[in-house]
Amino acid sequence: MKKFILIISMLILFGCGPAPDVSEKVVWYPKPKDVNAFELRDQYGEVVSNQDFTGKWNLLFLGYTSCPDVCPMTLLKLTHVYQSVKSKGDLQVWFVSVDPNRDTEEKRLAYIKHFDPDFKAVSAEHSALFPFVRDLGLIYAINQEQTEEYYVDHSASVALINPKGQLEAIFKPTHTAGAVPTIDDKLLLADLEEIIN
């Protein structure tokens, strides 16, 4: 019993708490990971960097505007999550386009307005984009046979960056036979609130 009280006292002393009670769809980092310095551009042509993470919780999702299924479905679910929690604290949603050749600022701006104009729709040349995505533990790949209608393979997970600008968690999609892998918005919302609180 004394050992238990000592452990709890140390956790309180060092500002630590117990691990959040999250679902099996979450990879939670007990020690959040710093995100390397980056520069991307948003849908208005403004430079965004690590500074834009600070002070808010951030949900990041990879995609591209020509995506036929995963991207619009996930962004619709993230819209629901955003609308459900934005009154309880600061939350930003980032749509990270991994198709910079086709997804111009104008195209990203028009696309993101279908979901929520408050969302950031960012991208960059692959030389800056790929290291940023890899640093978040996510991936993407473009088919080498680049016709006008090429597809981009990308993670369907959603990364969570904490208000200190660190990678806090990854929300994994649900995989069901014959269905497109997407996040479960109700589960993500419950897990997010557990982590934030």
Rank of each mutant, 00 (worst) to 15 (best):
F14I: 15
F14V: 15
F14R: 04
F14Y: 11
F14P: 04
G15N: 06
G15W: 01
C16M: 12
G17S: 07
G17P: 01
G17N: 00
G17Y: 05
G17E: 02
G17T: 11
P18G: 15
A19M: 08
P20N: 03
P20V: 07
P20C: 02
D21R: 06
V22P: 01
V22T: 08
V22W: 02
S23L: 04
E24D: 14
E24I: 08
K25L: 07
V26P: 02
V26Y: 05
V26G: 06
V26S: 08
W28D: 02
W28A: 05
K31H: 07
P32M: 03
K33D: 06
K33N: 11
D34G: 11
N36R: 13
A37Q: 14
A37E: 14
F38P: 01
F38V: 10
E39H: 07
L40F: 03
R41F: 10
R41E: 15
R41W: 09
R41Y: 13
R41K: 15
D42H: 08
D42K: 03
D42G: 05
Q43C: 00
Y44W: 12
Y44K: 11
Y44R: 10
G45W: 10
G45V: 10
E46G: 12
V47D: 12
V48D: 04
S49H: 10
S49D: 14
N50E: 08
Q51N: 12
D52E: 14
D52F: 10
F53M: 08
T54L: 15
K56L: 00
W57I: 09
W57C: 11
